[in-house]
Amino acid sequence: MRKYLVVVEETETGFSAFSPDLDGCIATGTTREEVETLIKEAMQFHLEGMKEDGLLTPVPHSYSIYCELA
C-alpha cells in the first residue's frame, strides 16, 4: 500500500482536491467529506487505469510543510 499526498483547497463553491503524484487526478465536492471521498475514488480509478494500460504505479514523492511567517 502506498500513501499519496492530497491537497484540498476551499473554493467559492465548495472544495477541490488533487494529488501532485498523480497527474490529472482531481475531484471536487460541496463539502470536505464529499471531496475526500471522491478524491479517494478518483485516485483508485486513476491507478486502476494506469495498471490496465500497462503503466507503472507512480512512487509517491511529494510531501507537505507549513511555513510560519511573521
Results as ranks from 00 to 15, higher is better:
residue 62 S to E: 04
residue 8 V to E: 08
residue 56 L to N: 15
residue 25 C to S: 07
residue 3 K to W: 10
residue 46 H to E: 02
residue 3 K to H: 12
residue 40 K to T: 14
residue 27 A to Q: 02
residue 11 T to P: 11
residue 30 T to L: 12
residue 45 F to V: 08
residue 68 E to Q: 06
residue 36 E to Y: 04
residue 47 L to F: 01
residue 35 V to P: 02
residue 58 P to L: 03
residue 1 M to T: 14
residue 28 T to Q: 10
residue 58 P to R: 03
residue 6 V to H: 01
residue 53 D to I: 00
residue 61 H to D: 13
residue 56 L to S: 15
residue 32 R to I: 14
residue 6 V to P: 00
residue 27 A to F: 07
residue 24 G to C: 04
residue 66 Y to C: 09
residue 50 M to G: 10
residue 2 R to K: 15
residue 33 E to V: 02
residue 69 L to Y: 11
residue 69 L to R: 11
residue 49 G to T: 08
residue 53 D to M: 07
residue 15 F to V: 00
residue 51 K to Y: 14
residue 32 R to V: 11
residue 5 L to A: 14
residue 50 M to E: 06
residue 52 E to Y: 03
residue 10 E to R: 11
residue 22 L to Y: 01
residue 44 Q to F: 08
residue 14 G to W: 00
residue 18 F to T: 05
residue 31 T to Q: 04
residue 50 M to H: 03
residue 36 E to M: 07
residue 35 V to C: 05
residue 67 C to W: 11
residue 61 H to E: 14
residue 53 D to A: 14
residue 2 R to C: 03
residue 48 E to R: 09
residue 53 D to G: 08
residue 53 D to C: 08
residue 2 R to T: 12
residue 9 E to T: 06
residue 48 E to M: 12
residue 38 L to C: 09
residue 60 P to M: 02
residue 43 M to W: 00
residue 2 R to N: 15
residue 26 I to E: 15
residue 10 E to G: 04
residue 63 Y to R: 10
residue 11 T to E: 09
residue 26 I to R: 09
residue 62 S to F: 03
residue 36 E to P: 04
residue 32 R to E: 08
residue 13 T to Y: 10
residue 69 L to F: 12
residue 65 I to Q: 13
residue 11 T to R: 01
residue 10 E to P: 08
residue 58 P to H: 04
residue 54 G to A: 05
residue 39 I to R: 03
residue 69 L to E: 10
residue 1 M to F: 09
residue 12 E to A: 13
residue 28 T to L: 09
residue 1 M to G: 13
residue 1 M to L: 09
residue 68 E to P: 06
residue 57 T to V: 14
residue 63 Y to T: 14
